[in-house]
Design a protein around this nucleic acid. Structure first.
Lengths: 377, 377
DNA sequence: GGCCAAACTGAATCGCAAT
DNA sequence: GATTGCGATTCAGTTTGGC
């Protein structure tokens, strides 16, 4: 039964009424609706819940790439809701069950995008969960914005909550610091999206699930906030990333998944999951944010304000800085690199070393400003 | 930071009743409560609203009581519900006024942290604002987490919304791309917090305001989403960062601030801000804004005479130019766009970049001819 | 097998003016 | 208000295929 159907024709609610309560089955996938299945589990029986609920994307028509290809968007029924109210009702219900089965010192993680995460965050607070952090997953390789109409949607948001303000939750501070080159782990994580060999494919060679999460994301979460032997529940199990990582890290897991096809995919995947070897560990490592500094950043920050005059080392060429970080020199305008190349008639040019600013009587390459900017951080 | 512990009994509301409506005063600070002051402004009079609302006791007026002793556990639940409700009521009210005074094609930006941004996001959606992006301000130099109990809270979140799904909002795509070294600007922005000389200090040498935002943040927002001469309203003006950057970028501003001390600080600050001159204000022009040149114009003018042979970049397809500016390729004929699309079997095609003419041994896109034509005018 | 170029892909709320 | 047609728009990474 898809969610849309459930919304359209309200069924008699199972809600908090526990039907045939059963003990917690470890390292197993329960095939069924997440609310109904959670309702059958005992109170306070899991140490962590990781949830990747439908985002309610509300996409319009087809979107085409500039070169003509069509974007394979999420168009599954499970992501469709009649209204924000319907989405809120659904969220409130599964959160209610999640809270009941979570141990008092357990924590819940929920991932989402701007389409749904504000609803989820509000309802978490309304249900008296206590937000510990919101975490930003900065994607190193997001899909671009093909129409040039908005900022590239390059991140997703995770909420990490305890059951209340006083809860003594697990946070493996040292492990996180070690994972981050002995610096405190921050609330923004740079990780690539799930692709390549890790992406589970069907017999047709196509992706088995439209929204599979990278194992590195779950790895960090489970390492940070659970102990070995803890039980992690994932009510929207999909291809079983949570189960696979839990098994690798020696945590117990319970998955709930409505779609029989996904259940089979996840079961096969977890069955073939091996303990972490070193090469796998390497791929888990944080891809450090490149210390790239766009010239525009120096313009915004006032180190090189609009109107600044740039010259090359021999003062043969000059250009002026514009408000958006582009530069202008006679008929040429564009990036520091492009304009430098055009003026020299060269195929390319490193604008950072080509352009200089006056520094008293001497010239200083703008690369020096970049170094100052970097060292100021 | 317990929002929940800061409640007082709800007060009688002024709400939407407009008292002494007045015309919009430009480049001015209105000293008063933001809801009451907005209520006196005309409908649909500003192009953008930037809001940095309070999430703790200081600025909530009568809705909040000062931070006091601990609240009993028993009272906590009641307080909690009340407090969130009070914050929601306050947010709903100022958003209602904001929506009213915002032009139909204007946009609103709101910044917050995990304490309040989920409430704000939900209420924006409930008020039928249409989220365009959520932006993560990734702080390059955040305050560390001293107790080692959570991830370092290293970001804040901004929401950018139009009044509805169909609104034709301003987004200076090219300027943003230029600012980011010719790559699309993403939804995660790395910027340092406001410190050093930029941080406004009082006579006592201490920071004048606890949450002063960096000018670089406002610079990017105003450059991205407003045009020169647009009016930007900031209902929580503080030290006037929005006004200072607006003045620098040639935008009009209106600030609302309750605290007389901040009003004075902001007035002095903006008074000493120098606007950019026009040449420095220039940004990369959006092609979409350039005057249209029909292909037929190039045919008429002799730049691309009838009979000219056009080929695509890989010389897989060719076509010939006809006297009326249409082109012909085998069975296909029509506009440069239609024929290009038909030959590729694509839903659409930009003929300007698809088709090329021989230029010696190299190929030149016909878009280059159009540029020549434009610059000749 | 190795190398290089071309093709493909990812949770996406993705136009607008003239008729 | 609906339809038509111009024509603007992509980044990082993996896989495939040719030589």
């Amino acid at each position: 039964m898809n969610l849309l159907a459930r919304v359209a024709e309200p069924q008699p609610r199972v809600r908090t009424r526990k039907v045939e309560p059963r003990s917690l089955p470890l390292d197993t996938i329960l095939n069924g609706d997440c609310i109904a299945e959670m309702a059958r589990l005992p109170d306070k029986c899991v140490d962590m819940i990781f949830a990747d609920p439908p985002y309610n994307l509300q996409l319009g028509g087809d979107l085409f790439r500039p070169e003509g290809g069509r974007v394979d968007a999420v168009d599954d029924d499970w992501d469709k809701f009649d209204s924000l109210t319907a989405y809120d009702d659904f969220t409130r219900e599964w959160l209610e069950q999640a809270r009941r089965i979570l141990k008092d010192d357990g924590t819940i993680w929920v991932i989402g995008s701007y389409h749904n995460i504000y609803r989820v965050g509000t309802l978490l607070q309304d249900a008296e969960f206590w937000i510990l952090n919101d975490i930003v997953w900065r994607k190193s390789n997001p899909m671009p914005n093909f129409r040039g109409t908005r900022f590239t949607n390059a991140h997703e948001t995770l909420l990490w909550c305890a059951k209340d303000e006083k809860a003594r939750y697990t946070f493996n501070y040292r492990a996180m610091k070690a994972l981050n080159d002995d610096l405190q782990m921050r609330s923004d994580w740079v990780l690539p999206i799930c692709s390549g060999a890790e992406r589970v494919k069907g017999d047709d060679g196509l992706k088995a699930h439209p929204t599979q999460k990278p194992e590195a994301l779950l790895y960090r979460i489970l390492l940070a906030c659970t102990k070995p032997g803890d039980v992690v529940l994932d009510p929207f199990f999909g291809t079983g990333t949570t189960g696979a990582v839990a098994r690798r890290l020696g945590r117990h897991w319970v998955g709930i998944e409505r779609d029989r096809g996904y259940v089979k995919v996840a079961r096969d995947r977890i069955g073939s999951t091996l303990p972490l070897d070193e090469s796998a560990m390497a791929t888990m490592a944080d891809k450090r944010a490149a210390p790239r500094v766009a010239f525009g950043l120096l313009v915004e920050s006032g180190m090189c304000p609009p109107g600044t005059r740039l010259v090359d080392a021999k003062r043969r060429f000059s250009a002026s800085v514009r408000a958006d970080g582009s530069v202008e020199s006679g008929a040429h305008s564009g990036s520091i690199h492009k304009v430098g190349a055009a003026l020299q008639g060269a195929p390319s040019c490193n604008g950072w070393t080509f352009w200089h600013v006056e520094d008293g009587k001497a010239l200083q390459p703008i690369d020096a400003l970049r170094q100052q900017h970097l060292s100021a951080l």
